[in-house]
Design a protein around this nucleic acid. Sequence first.
DNA 1: GACAGAAACGAACGTTCGTGCTATTTTCCC
DNA 2: GGGAAAATAGCACGAACGTTCGTTTCTGTC
Lengths: 206, 206
Amino acid sequence: MKGDRTRQSILERAVDIASLEGLEGLTIGRLADELGMSKSGLFAHFGSKEDLQLATINAAGERFVIEVLKPALKAERGYPRLLAICRGWISYVRRDVFPGGCFFAAASFEFDGRPGPIRDAIAHTMNDWIGAIEKAIAMAKEEGHIDPDVDPKQLAFEINSLFFGANFAYQLLGDKAALQRAMRALEDRLESLRVKPKRKLAAVHR
Amino acid sequence: MKGDRTRQSILERAVDIASLEGLEGLTIGRLADELGMSKSGLFAHFGSKEDLQLATINAAGERFVIEVLKPALKAERGYPRLLAICRGWISYVRRDVFPGGCFFAAASFEFDGRPGPIRDAIAHTMNDWIGAIEKAIAMAKEEGHIDPDVDPKQLAFEINSLFFGANFAYQLLGDKAALQRAMRALEDRLESLRVKPKRKLAAVHR
DNA sequence: GACAGAAACGAACGTTCGTGCTATTTTCCC
DNA sequence: GGGAAAATAGCACGAACGTTCGTTTCTGTC
């Protein structure tokens, strides 16, 4: 009962710290200090540091879903939803959902050279996310909103690349215009693939 | 004399380790072990760990220039050089110039949340690099090879984003096709901006 | 309100971190 | 080839790391 609440607040803080300092930079002592509790008391909630890191990745994933994926899924399937994903992602960085920028961008580059369960967990989350983008692209094709020749994997790759580029320029270089630039690139790219909706006549067909 | 050689070999190894484990994961004890020398002997070459990290960033920058920038500058200015930069960067990842993928991509995301001299050094290097891309774009405009309406900052941002996206998918997800995908996106994008060279007639004009 | 179980604490473990010293060895120059 | 200077080693330090332990405090239930 109480333990669950504590565990949750530990993880919220852990996610924030890790987004700034990395999952390795996340330290049990510091985490305990910031929460005003003892190292051992905190540690007891997780069997090991690795467990804490895995739980932190999960918590970050939940926050991401709430802040980015779920809102975008409210847009109607097809082109609108695809655009909503892009707008949602850029907005998620602008709103500082994680204080250090995109948690998963940071984690991806931190652990891409370190095999193990943590890297696997990050890769799994990222695969889910990119899969969601691909699905939105495939739907936009099915709905006839975009060029039927589009390769979802290719386009999802490009979209995700622009996300990372935006996060990089915004966070490291402090380039305030980066988010606009990314949004412009995303909109131009999507627009170039768009099939203008046929008018009334086509609508009658279904 | 001897010291310089030793220092150089320390830094070469430091760069390799840091590309895998990050600049914080780079540890003096481990570095000394791998080189078969004492911690204190190694440490004497640098006044502090921060100095070591800064020197490591410099060494990585030199390797990058040798492996990516300089070869690309051999291509003739304008469109060919711009394309050479893109091909060179993709090839640089494929060739495993750094064992953990692009050193600066990793470092950028590691330090984007930690103010200080190290973050500044990374940001400075990245600004130089992106500046070089912008310059190549501007030249391609001057030469009349690409659309005169192109915004160099915007295009350089997109190109760099694709570099990061490629590194991410290749290193973390182990996606072998990622480099091809990135190259295809880069070539398509550049091709879409290209101005087909006027024939003989125009050549006579100058 | 007593009691059992959960939750948090404080102290200590062994290790590793970065960083100082003081020797000792190696290198380079006259 | 001897002697100054540079390079490396050895050892110790305080702090922080993750982790374990036994004890104490809090919580929820009958």
